[in-house]
Design a protein around this nucleic acid. Structure first.
Lengths: 195, 195
DNA sequence: CCTCCTCTAGATTGATCGCTCTAGCGATAG
DNA sequence: CTATCGCTAGAGCGATCAATCTAGAGGAGG
C-alpha cells in the first residue's frame, strides 16, 4: 500500500504551493501528511529535492486537468477563457489568496538553484503548453498561433497570480483574462490568415 | 556615511532577485556586501525582514525607472512595449536567466507569510501600475483603460518571466510582448470609445 | 586631553535545517 | 512456528539559520 507515500506527495505539493520550496521543511511535510519521518527517506532516498520534483510533476498533472475541465463544457473558447480566469480568481479568494499556481513559487525559487527541480517545472509548463495548444488547434487555429496564444494565456495567468497575491485583489486576474479572451476572439475572427 | 548601509541594501536586493528571500542568508548578504555582520543589525534592528522590505522598495523604485527610460525615447507606444519586452529578454539571456523581476520571487514567497513584506511588494506593484497608467493616459486613453492595459502588461511580463526562467527560453517574453503590443495598438485605434 | 556616540567586529546563542541511523512492528511466505 | 521484508518510528547527527551580545575602533565636540 502506497497510501503513506501519496499523502507525503500531496502534503508536499500543497505546502510548496502555499509557502514555496525553501520555506517548507521536511518535518512540516511529514507532520502535515501524518506520516512517519522515516518513511519520507524510505520512499524518497533522494531527499527533499526528489520529493519536490515528484510533487511538482504530480500537482502539475492535476492542474493540467483543469484545462479540459473548464474549456470542454464551455459554449465557446472565449467563454472558456473567461471562466478559466474567473475560476482561478474565485479559488484564490476562497483560500484567502493562498492557492494560486501550484508550481510558480517553486519555479522562481529553484530555476537558478536546482537543475533537477527547474527541469521538473519546465516539463510541467511545457506539458500545459502542449495541452492548451491542442485545444486551440481544435478551434481551427494554426499550430503556431495556437502555441502562441497558449503561452500568452499562461503567462498572463501566472503574472496575474503574482500581482493578485501581493495586492490581495482579483483585479489582475480580471483584466488579464479579458485581454486574453479578446486576443483569442480576434485570432478566431481572423482565422487561418497569417499576418 | 551610509555607504555600508547602501551596500547592504544593494547586495540584498540582488540576492533576493536571484535566489529569493528564504534561500538568502544574512551571512551571505554581509559577505556579498563586504560589510561587517554587526552593521546589519545596527542599521536594521528589525532584522532580515526589515532589510528585505527596504530592499524590495529600493529595487522596485529602480525598476520603475525603466518604464520611462524605455518608453520615452520610443517613437510610439507600441514600439515601446515591444522594446520593453525585448529588453527584458535580452537582459535575461545576458545574466543566464537569473535577473528577471527584482521582486516577483520574494512576492510569491512572502505573500502568505509576512504581512510587512507582502505590503512592501504590493506598494511596489501599485507604484508600477500608477507609473504605467500615467504613461498610457498620456497617449490619449481613458484612466480606466490605461490602468487595465498597464496591469495586463505587467501580468504578462511577470508571467513570461516565470515561464522563461523555468524553460530557459525567451519565447514567452516574445509572444507575451507581442500580444500586449497588439492589444495596446487596438486600444489606441479604438480611441476613447467605451465598449 | 577626554568623553560621547556611531559604527565595526565577530563570538556565541538557541533553534531549526536536511538527513542518517538503528530498532522494531506487522504482514506474508515457507 | 520462524524468517523475511516493506515500512514505521523517532532519536540524534553536523551544519546552518537569524539574532543577540559584548567589546572596541574611530571621529566629533568640548
Amino acid at each position: 500500500m502506497a497510501a503513506t507515500r501519496d499523502r507525503i506527495v500531496d502534503a508536499s505539493a500543497e505546502l510548496f504551493r502555499r509557502q514555496g520550496y525553501n520555506a517548507t521543511g521536511v518535518k512540516q511535510i511529514v507532520t502535515e501528511a501524518q506520516a512517519p519521518f522515516g518513511s519520507l527517506y524510505h520512499f524518497f532516498p533522494g531527499g527533499k529535492e526528489q520529493l519536490a520534483a515528484e510533487a511538482v510533476r504530480t500537482s502539475g498533472a492535476m492542474y493540467e486537468l483543469l484545462i479540459p475541465a473548464v474549456f470542454d463544457p464551455a459554449p465557446d473558447l472565449i467563454t472558456g477563457v473567461r471562466q478559466f480566469f474567473a475560476g482561478a480568481a474565485a479559488h484564490l479568494v476562497e483560500t484567502d489568496y493562498e492557492d494560486a499556481c501550484p508550481i510558480a513559487t517553486v519555479a522562481l525559487e529553484v530555476s537558478s538553484a536546482s537543475e533537477i527541480l527547474r527541469q521538473a517545472c519546465a516539463d510541467v509548463f511545457e506539458s500545459w503548453i502542449e495541452a492548451g495548444t491542442g485545444m486551440y488547434e481544435g478551434a481551427g487555429l494554426t499550430p503556431e498561433r495556437a502555441r502562441e496564444l497558449t503561452i500568452a494565456m499562461l503567462a498572463a495567468l501566472e503574472g496575474a497570480f503574482v500581482l493578485a497575491r501581493a495586492l490581495r485583489s482579483t483585479e489582475p486576474l480580471g483584466v488579464a483574462g479579458e485581454v486574453i479572451a479578446q486576443t483569442v476572439q480576434r485570432a478566431i475572427d481572423e482565422g487561418p490568415r497569417r499576418p
